[in-house]
């Protein structure tokens, strides 16, 4: 899990908000440009980070709470890209990662899920997903196995 050669690539910091996630993702993709990733790799990174960031906007800084900062750090190592996403909002329930379950789609049309896909997508697409709540901060670490062998 440790990737000793990891080198810092970029940071993105922004204030939580429904439209802010788009801008933050655009900045991340911009920061990844030097790696010349293919469309599929870029799409995977964008999806995983979108799910993580939307979760923070919705649950760590819910409507009614003051907004706050979200920080994304990207490092590149032998095993791919290491992202750390931090915020100072509400912790995850029980300060643990939510269960990532693939929703059952073999059900009556009206019982089909309309949400809850986010953590499943993160766990399915990212490696070494790790979460901690420390000193009032949510810290989410994850690795994407792209641009390996730096």
């Amino acid at each position: 899990m440790t990737d000793t050669l990891s080198a810092h690539m970029f940071d993105v910091e922004f204030q939580s908000g429904p439209l802010a996630v788009r801008q933050a993702l655009a900045q991340v993709l911009d920061g990844l440009k030097p790696l010349s990733l293919d469309v599929e790799e870029t799409g995977t990174i964008e999806l995983v980070l979108a799910e993580a960031l939307n979760n923070i906007v919705e649950h760590a800084y819910p409507e009614g709470d003051p907004t706050g900062a979200i920080n994304i750090t990207c490092k590149r190592g032998e095993k791919g890209l290491h992202f750390r996403v931090t915020d100072s909002g509400r912790p995850m329930p029980e300060e643990k990662l939510p269960m990532a379950v693939q929703a059952d789609v073999d059900v009556d049309m009206f019982d089909l899920p309309e949400g809850g896909f986010g953590w499943f997508l993160i766990q399915d697409l990212a490696k070494d997903v790790d979460y901690a709540y420390e000193n009032g901060k949510n810290i989410l670490d994850l690795r994407l196995a792209v641009a390996m062998g730096a």
Partner: peptide, 21 residues
């Protein structure tokens, strides 16, 4: 459309449900 996240996916499912069987 080059990007759909889980919220977008949920909205497409909701649109199908709203149309009915």
């Amino acid at each position: 459309v080059d990007f759909v996240d889980s919220s977008g996916l949920g909205a497409i499912v909701a649109a199908m449900k709203a149309m009915g069987k």
